[in-house]
Amino acid sequence: MAQHTPPAPRICPACDGFATVAVTLGGRDPRGHLRTLTTDCPACHGTGTAPAHRVREGARA
């Protein structure tokens, strides 16, 4: 019996799948640690995948 493979997840076009990044603020704190901010992609909210487009009923193709 053949196995069905699930379709690959849709990668977010805004971040290309790299949904969370660390942005350097420049310089270091008094302890010597690099100051960074963790930022999520605003399009996919940090998931890395794009939502599937659903066809609305009555919409033209």
Rank of each mutant, 00 (worst) to 15 (best):
M1D: 15
A2K: 14
Q3V: 02
Q3K: 09
Q3H: 08
H4G: 10
H4Q: 14
T5L: 06
T5S: 07
T5D: 03
T5Y: 10
T5A: 02
P6T: 09
P6H: 07
P6W: 03
P7A: 13
P7H: 04
P7Y: 09
A8S: 10
A8C: 02
A8F: 09
A8P: 07
P9R: 04
P9H: 04
P9F: 05
R10V: 01
I11H: 01
I11W: 04
I11M: 06
C12I: 00
P13N: 02
A14T: 05
A14S: 10
A14M: 13
C15Y: 01
C15R: 03
C15S: 01
C15V: 01
D16I: 00
G17N: 03
F18D: 07
A19S: 14
T20C: 02
T20R: 12
T20A: 04
T20N: 05
T20F: 04
A22N: 08
V23D: 12
V23Y: 15
V23L: 15
T24M: 02
T24L: 05
T24N: 09
T24P: 14
T24K: 05
L25N: 13
G26Q: 01
G26L: 03
G26S: 05
D29V: 01
D29N: 11
P30H: 02
P30F: 04
R31S: 14
R31W: 05
G32K: 06
H33V: 08
H33W: 12
H33D: 15
L34W: 03
L34V: 13
R35S: 05
R35C: 06
R35G: 01
T36A: 11
L37S: 08
L37K: 09
L37G: 06
T38N: 10
T39L: 15
D40S: 14
D40H: 11
D40M: 08
C41T: 02
C41K: 04
C41W: 05
C41P: 06
P42N: 12
P42A: 12
A43E: 10
A43T: 09
A43W: 11
C44I: 01
C44W: 07
C44E: 07
H45V: 07
H45K: 15
H45A: 09
H45D: 12
H45E: 11
H45S: 09
G46C: 00
G46S: 02
T47F: 01
T47S: 10
T47W: 04
T47Q: 02
T47L: 07
G48K: 01
G48N: 01
T49I: 00
A50K: 00
A50F: 00
A50V: 00
A50C: 00
A50T: 00
A50Y: 00
P51K: 05
P51T: 02
P51D: 02
A52E: 13
A52V: 07
H53N: 06
H53C: 04
H53M: 08
H53P: 09
H53A: 07
R54P: 05
R54V: 08
V55A: 12
R56E: 15
R56Q: 13
R56N: 12
R56F: 08
E57H: 14
E57F: 11
E57S: 11
E57N: 10
G58Y: 07
G58E: 08
G58F: 08
A59E: 15
A59G: 11
A59I: 01
A59M: 09
A59T: 06
R60K: 13
R60F: 12
A61M: 13
